[in-house]
């Protein structure tokens, strides 16, 4: 198989790689905020349960979580393994990344000085207005570097989908490598991920810059 054919075949999986990437961000970014708020809840039970959830997700391999979400329903309830594996893959990724984002959000929220809340309260902002208008924008600025880190990791983590044979770019590459006994597909995959992350870096850098107007 020529290098060109290899590249073309693997590019066909890029759409799926992108699907995992964008859908995971779409769900995990807001879900992470919900988890963070539950984690900071004044109700001790709620925050304890959420904390346990976060430690489980962060303390076990993503690969295991992918297997659990994809095949768990079959072993537990005899349910059919879904034909479109994108669904379980995105569910597993979203839950996993939500746990990481939640901790980033929490750190950001807790780093905002109490005086910001007090000033807003005295000026007549409601709790919701205070969060949306005063706290959240400052949190976003502060956590951008950590979020960028996670997003870059997510690009590389999409390759984990090979564990459940979802036909994204890396899975295809791995299959070619096996059938052709060639190392080339891994090099191609590496280049793909590198370019993908260069774009991510550039875009995140732009966002960070756009928030540079204040300290």
């Amino acid at each position: 198989m020529s290098l060109m054919t290899m590249i073309i075949k693997m590019s066909e999986g890029l759409g799926k790689t992108c699907a995992i990437f964008f859908l995971t961000l779409l769900f995990s970014l807001p879900l992470g905020m919900i988890v963070a708020l539950l984690r900071m809840s004044k109700a001790k039970v709620v925050s304890a349960i959420t904390r346990f959830f976060i430690t489980v997700i962060r303390g076990t391999p993503l690969m295991l979580q992918l297997l659990a979400v994809t095949y768990g329903p079959y072993y537990l309830f005899g349910a059919n393994v879904s034909r479109n594996k994108l669904i379980p893959v995105v569910i597993a990724f979203s839950i996993n990344y939500a746990a990481y984002f939640a901790e980033i959000y929490r750190g950001g929220i807790e780093s905002i000085p109490i005086g910001q809340y007090e000033a807003a309260e005295v000026l007549g902002y409601t709790k919701f207005q205070t969060f949306m208008r005063i706290i959240l924008p400052q949190v976003i600025k502060r956590i951008m570097p950590s979020v960028t880190n996670e997003v870059v990791t997510l690009v590389k983590d999409t390759s984990m989908a090979f564990t459940v044979s979802y036909q994204e770019m890396f899975t295809i590459g791995k299959q070619i490598a096996n059938s052709q006994t060639s190392f080339m597909p891994f090099v191609v995959a590496g280049v793909f991920y590198y370019i993908f992350n260069a774009i991510v870096d550039y875009l995140m850098g732009r966002i960070e810059k756009s928030l540079d107007y204040y300290r």
């Binding site: 910001q116 007090e118 005295v122 924008p137 400052q138």
Partner: peptide
């Protein structure tokens, strides 16, 4: 709405 409070360290909204 009847009172205003000025803090020692201003607490302006930086953004």
């Amino acid at each position: 709405t009847r009172f205003g409070l000025v803090f020692q360290n201003f607490n302006l909204f930086p953004h």
